[in-house]
Simulated assay, not measured.
Amino acid sequence: MKFAIALLAGPQDPAARSALSFAQAALDGGHQISRLFFYRDAVHLASDLAVQPQDESDIAREWREFISSNELDAVVCIAAALRRGVLNEAEASRWERPVANSGQPWVLSGLGQWVDAMQSADRAVTFGS
């Protein structure tokens, strides 16, 4: 089965961990993930600047490692990212900001990527609200 997974919850929300566990279990079960789509506060997971206390798990790092090691398509909603200050090199330059705080494995793109993912997947699953 091919899944499209959307995450709407930020790093502090338990839904971020649930989505990661689901995605790992899907791949472990022999399924595919057509696309991961990060929307609303989930775009904070794409920021390279957040630092977690040493006694807390770093869910953003875990997502990055999971995406990279499985070579998954991870799209961050560009409108939600810009509103929350999550910028890749191109957007930082475009909006004349001094620094970018997002890069690989994340791709900033529009909601059309989520629509495309749902059309090519057998199931669409959303975590968070």
Rank of each mutant, 00 (worst) to 15 (best):
D73N: 15
R84A: 03
A90W: 07
A90H: 13
P98Y: 07
E96R: 15
S102H: 05
V75M: 01
R83Y: 03
I67S: 00
N88S: 06
E71R: 15
S47K: 05
L49G: 11
A50F: 14
W95R: 13
V86S: 01
E62S: 13
V76Q: 01
A80Y: 03
V76W: 00
A90K: 15
N101E: 05
L82R: 10
I67V: 07
D73A: 12
A79F: 11
D48M: 02
P53V: 05
R84N: 03
E96I: 15
V99W: 11
E65H: 10
E89G: 02
W63M: 06
R64F: 01
I67D: 00
E71H: 14
N101Q: 07
E56D: 12
E65W: 04
R61P: 03
S102T: 11
A92F: 03
L82D: 10
S47R: 06
L82S: 09
R83V: 06
D58W: 04
R61Q: 14
N70V: 09
A90Y: 11
L72K: 09
S102N: 07
D48T: 04
A100Q: 12
A50G: 09
E65D: 14
S102E: 06
A100V: 09
A79K: 12
A81L: 04
G85Y: 01
R61V: 10
S68K: 13
I67F: 00
